[in-house]
Nucleic acid binder design. Structure first.
Lengths: 227, 227
DNA sequence: GTCTATACGGCGATAGAC
DNA sequence: GTCTATCGCCGTATAGAC
């Protein structure tokens, strides 16, 4: 896990970051807070302590900078999660993992990343929350970056739930996706709603409950065929 | 249900809309598509076929217009959903409704609204999806407009699940909230992911699966006390 | 009251000079 | 790689027409 808590995800030591990297870091945090339209290149440049034009020099147009931010960590995220899925399937009895084990493999790496001390990763996940719920960009960008992994995940579920209705399988993934990305967003709404009983940034508890919640839901709608 | 599928939600006939209403309608649709920062007052005015300054005249600053959009339908939404919850509790055996019945009462009215022909309501729900996942506005605005209803909903769940861990109850609501609002957003991601097997705008199926999914999840994490 | 035309200061993305 | 210049659009205020 060590290799994913650092900067762009590949370095192992605290090397001084290049300006090019600093731009990506600043953009990541600001886009996560305010969405694509809520941030200006000037704000990003200021936060990265570089000239406005340097962002365009390295990344082109604003939209391309946004894509670069998304792409950077998608690579390492997909690798870590693909590995978790591989392990889950390889260690399953008769090559047929349980629903719980699959959901666990899908969610646990994200829980560990979000609970880690790394602010960059937390900003990235909050940005994914924004993208996933965006009517304009959600369909296209989530598809581009994460569909291969998600398809593998659904394939695994199909093994564990051989009688599942196909539509139910996809809708089940949809509910999981919504629950997960709202957790990414960390809006602090739970804090006031529960008067402090539940805290939206208590990711450890958030994932501990999410895994059995989603597994039970998935089994409920997939076990008996059609709704 | 007839009274909620029309315009602002109160008229019953297709009366010609005032310019003041047209501004709200246009703002609702555009904010739903692009978020608060992705829309300009000029775009709203153009869509409503009024002068730019008229929006400010009626509603003040941009942020106040946004609040007015949110407020308009929140009123009627809360009333319909409170009624559904009342009925659910009143008709329950021994005044103790089942988890399924409570989730059904909470979600069914939204499903009917979203599946209705009314575009205005669909835009409104997409806007709620945006607000709910906004780190900047989500905590504050969802709290302001919907917390009383949500608290009643959680009170009802507490009746049905007397041994539930309090934290689990709130996290369960959180997962429900995420799954629900992603359904509001209608990003069409499911369409390509499932190669047409599941369609994100097929709200009828979306809610038909959501209700048992959430009920099962809620029971799984609440039935046995602590996780 | 309701509405329009116009103006203002400011900041947006980006291209071109260096 | 860096900085400046440009042009257009931003939210908002206001003066006055109906």
């Amino acid at each position: 896990m060590d290799q994913i808590v650092e900067g762009g995800g590949l370095l192992t030591a605290k090397t001084k970051k290049s300006r090019k990297e600093r731009i990506l870091d600043a953009a990541e945090e600001l886009f996560a807070d305010s969405g694509y339209d809520g941030v200006t290149l000037r704000q990003i440049a200021k936060a990265a302590k570089v000239d406005v034009a340097l962002a365009s020099y390295h990344y082109g147009r604003k939209r391309e900078l946004f894509d670069a931010v998304l792409y950077r960590r998608a690579e390492v995220l997909n690798q870590v999660r693909n590995d978790a899925l591989d392990t889950c399937i390889a260690t399953a009895k008769d090559g047929k993992p349980t629903v719980e084990a699959i959901i666990e493999a899908y969610l646990r790496p994200l829980g560990e990343i979000q609970a880690s001390a790394d602010g960059g990763w937390r900003h990235y996940l909050a940005l994914i929350a924004w993208v996933n719920n965006s009517p304009k960009m959600g369909g296209e960008l989530m598809t581009r970056y994460f569909n291969p992994l998600v398809s593998r995940f659904i394939d695994a579920l199909r093994l564990a739930l051989p009688d599942a209705d196909e539509q139910a399988l996809y809708w089940g993934y949809h509910y999981l996706s919504g629950a997960l990305t709202l957790t990414f967003a960390d809006t602090h709404r739970l804090d006031t709603l529960s008067k402090g009983t539940a805290i939206s940034s208590d990711f450890k508890t958030g994932y501990a409950h999410m895994i059995p919640f989603i597994a039970a839901g998935m089994k409920a709608i997939c076990a008996n065929g059609k709704p």
